[in-house]
Design a protein around this nucleic acid. Structure first.
Lengths: 197, 197
DNA sequence: AATAAAACTGATTCATCAGTCAGCTTAACT
DNA sequence: AGTTAAGCTGACTGATGAATCAGTTTTATT
């Protein structure tokens, strides 16, 4: 792996686990096995490094989801919804550094003044909401999902799933222990209640 | 107001809006209209100041909820659940600094090594979950709420509501715009589906 | 082999910040 | 009025951290 990629990978992990302001460039350098000045050769500033990290995370998330939905087919919109939620939780476990990073405050703070950062975050969250929305719309077409506003309901579902991941990241409650109840709640919330399955 | 309380109030606001590590003691001092050394006269360290802030927030939250449930009575468990959710959202708006603080990462980081911090956070989240759980149990007794595990379902509901507040705090989506859908989702999720109202 | 460009680094700079301390001011009590 | 303690402060310290820069090493090209 090139030095630049090595630095990016290390920085992602450190920013995610310890936070942006809590991580010094010297730490990133040491953990990457390079001199501090080397980081500044590859990245203009600490913020620039952060934006590259975030861009990488975005690419990773979009890639993972497009791959999952490229391979998988679903019997109904409701199943697609459940699959999406499950995959979100799976990803939050296997690529926890991505979600830890997104559950810190720094990205959103930076987004207030930085167009690029704002766009990355929008892309990521639109990806999430779009997927849930698509499942809801498809479910309404095939009759597995009841009548409800798809975009806003997708946002409510995202906040539920995202909230559970946050609980895990903050050591408040284990996400795995809530998996069955989460799926049950989402099913009741979305399923077409006139048509018993 | 005593100087000490003035400092606490200012620190709460600054830690909430800018973050703990992003706020210097000099800033807190200036915004409180005292000398930096004065803060160290009243508080042993920056962490000690933070713990006092968190303790204050805890007292405020517990007080607000006990007051709300002391005044209000509900026709059914389902109505109590909806009332609780509404009050949570109302509080997250009127006392946004409390919830901003709780949506930062520092408290949870500190909780890993600090018993007092951990206890404060547990008290706060137990307060939230207990309220939702109590509503669910009551609703199951009066028939307004269906059969579901109350504690875990309460946690799922908390993550939904908390997730929506986080979206608002991160400027991702307006909580108010999702209010109706949130209530609708929670109703479908919890309501006794055999007994149409 | 010579040359140029790219990659990398040690040493340094300048700013910031948590925390200290010696001494000053105010309030309370006798 | 005198005494004491609590409240408060300006000036300082030592540590840390982002960023710079002059110079060295490596790589690619001719």
């Amino acid at each position: 792996m090139s030095r630049k990629k090595e630095i990016l990978k290390t920085a992602t992990l450190l920013f995610a686990t310890n936070g942006f302001n809590e991580t010094s460039m010297a730490e990133v350098a040491k953990a990457s096995g390079v001199a501090t000045a080397t980081i500044f050769y590859h990245f203009n500033s600490k913020d620039d490094l952060f934006l590259s990290v975030l861009s990488n995370v975005k690419d990773g998330i979009l890639e993972e989801f497009s791959q999952y939905f490229g391979e998988k087919t679903f019997e109904s919109g409701l199943e697609m919804l459940e699959g999406s939620v499950s995959f979100y939780l799976y990803l939050a476990g296997s690529r926890s550094e991505w979600f830890l990073l997104l559950h810190r405050y720094y990205p959103y703070k930076l987004a207030e003044e930085n167009e690029t950062c704002r766009r990355h975050l929008e892309d990521i969250y639109n990806c999430f909401v779009d997927i849930f929305e698509k499942a809801l719309v498809q479910g309404q077409a095939d009759g597995s999902i009841g009548s409800l506003p798809p975009r806003k309901t997708a946002l409510v579902i995202l906040s539920t799933v995202d909230g559970i991941v946050r609980f895990k990241n903050c050591n408040l409650y284990d996400a795995g222990a809530l998996y069955n109840e989460l799926i049950a709640c989402i099913r009741k919330m979305a399923a077409n209640q006139n048509q018993k399955q």
